[in-house]
């Protein structure tokens, strides 16, 4: 989960990471791992500060971040929505569900909502074709979903968040 840090805390964290690796350009990947372990992703302002501290150009940092699959540039959502795109689900309307989700969450696949509540992913087959189309949120499976029903399901999660 993404942490909310003040500017000072953030700088302190980056500095400790840079110190540990002596700010060496060859340790860039190791530093990025350490940062992502803390934040769950690599925020742009952290990259910027890292660049200032180490002298590695920001472009080079982004070159590396975007090359490797494991590094994220947006925070992971609190709840991961996985829409099954297996054959059965696909034909039973999974693409429409994805469209609906993209529309209401205003994000693309692989992204998270600005409030960090949801992250949208499509997966190959969840292995419960009898319930097609299937959507999984975190570890919970929802079967026979349709574009209206998905709204109700999401509402449960937003309500739960509001009540906190």
């Amino acid at each position: 989960m993404a942490k909310q840090l003040t500017e000072d805390q953030l700088k302190e964290l980056v500095e400790s990471v840079v110190d540990r690796w002596g700010g060496r350009p060859d340790a860039l990947i190791m530093m990025l791992h350490a940062i992502q372990d803390e934040f769950g992703y690599i925020p742009r302002r952290v990259s910027l500060y890292l660049s200032q501290k180490t002298g590695i150009p920001l472009a080079q940092i982004y070159e590396v971040i975007t090359f490797y699959h494991l590094f994220r540039t947006s925070p992971p959502g609190k709840h991961k929505i996985s829409v099954c795109m297996g054959t059965a689900c696909y034909l039973k309307g999974a693409p429409q569900i994805v469209e609906k989700l993209k529309e209401i969450l205003e994000i693309k696949e692989g992204e998270s909502t600005p409030d960090g509540l949801f992250q949208l992913e499509t997966v190959r087959c969840l292995g419960c074709c009898g319930l097609a189309p299937v959507v999984m949120i975190d570890d919970k499976v929802y079967g026979k979903v349709n574009p209206e029903k998905i709204m109700d399901i999401l509402a449960q999660y937003t309500k739960e968040q509001d009540s906190k």
Partner: peptide, 26 residues
């Protein structure tokens, strides 16, 4: 220890070297 970051091509010698040097693994 140096860690990879999810790039299969880094198993290739010269890409692996680039990755240890802190660059894109090409």
């Amino acid at each position: 220890i140096r860690l990879g970051a999810g790039a299969f091509v880094c198993g290739e010698e010269t890409a692996l070297i680039a990755s240890i040097e802190g660059k894109r693994g090409t």
